[in-house]
């Protein structure tokens, strides 16, 4: 029988999982799908989150109710259920690419969490700042835009970064609607090769590197934002 040492076995598994039949391309395509879905979802989630936060902070009862229901429902149901409802029910017959439907689903989901982060950030700003803005002769929206938001954004930035990271990892469920992301590509390789170790570790490493790169980039951005506080 062919005896291989540990490293030879690793090399053999690696070749069988990723090189044979160019399976590495599955992972590469998966990375692109994950990035594509995540980026659109982050953008959409930020916009929705901002709007819902304004609804939740509004004095208008109707807007407040809308914001409250949105946050409550989204936070109270699993994201995989939301994804499947959006894909198989709401957009069942719509001629929209799968990845875009997934992005919309994750954007809607993330919006609820982002809205709470933004709401908390705005409310953390001292009431005196609003009074100062109003007394200077700024109207409510100018006070929000020029005085409150710049301060709130600095405070919420770390929490927003955390939400983006969670969102990227959350996209690992897109396989449920037939999208070949990193996780699904790993699963596919696992099934084709009957080897669990190599594809699953590759999946974990790819996610880790993606998130590490994002974290480092966001940290640099945060550093730049904080720099304006020290002169």
């Amino acid at each position: 029988m062919d005896e291989r040492n540990f490293f030879q076995q690793l090399a053999f598994d690696f070749t069988r999982c990723f090189i044979t039949e160019d399976r590495w391309q599955l992972l590469l395509k998966g990375i692109l799908v994950t990035i594509e879905v995540s980026l659109v979802a982050i953008a959409l989630g930020t916009v929705i989150g901002f709007l819902i936060a304004l609804c939740n902070l509004s004095k208008n009862k109707f807007l407040k109710t809308i914001g409250g229901i949105y946050t409550d429902v989204i936070r109270g149901t699993p994201s995989v259920t939301q994804l499947m409802i959006i894909y198989f029910v709401i957009f069942a017959t719509a001629p929209i690419p799968k990845w875009l439907i997934a992005s919309i689903a994750f954007g809607i989901n993330s919006g609820a969490y982002v809205s709470e982060i933004i709401r908390a950030g705005i409310q953390s700003i001292d009431k005196g700042q609003t009074e100062a803005g109003r007394s200077l002769g700024l109207n409510a929206s100018q006070t929000m835009t020029h005085i409150i938001m710049p301060q709130a954004l600095k405070n919420i930035f770390p929490a927003l970064c955390n939400e983006f990271i969670v969102l990227i990892k959350e996209t690992a469920i897109v396989g449920y609607v037939g999208l070949m992301d990193i996780q699904k590509a790993g699963d596919f390789i696992k099934s084709a090769t009957f080897s669990a170790f190599m594809p699953l570790f590759a999946t974990a490493i790819i996610y880790y590197v993606l998130i590490k790169v994002l974290t480092l980039g966001l940290k640099q951005l945060e550093k730049k934002l904080r720099k304006s506080d020290v002169r």
């Binding site: 001292d126 700042q129 009074e131 007394s135 200077l136």
Partner: peptide
Amino acid sequence: YRRKHLGYVFQQYNLIPN
């Protein structure tokens, strides 16, 4: 009216920190 007629000084200053 506030812009044109009023200047406000607060106990806690309320300066814009950034």
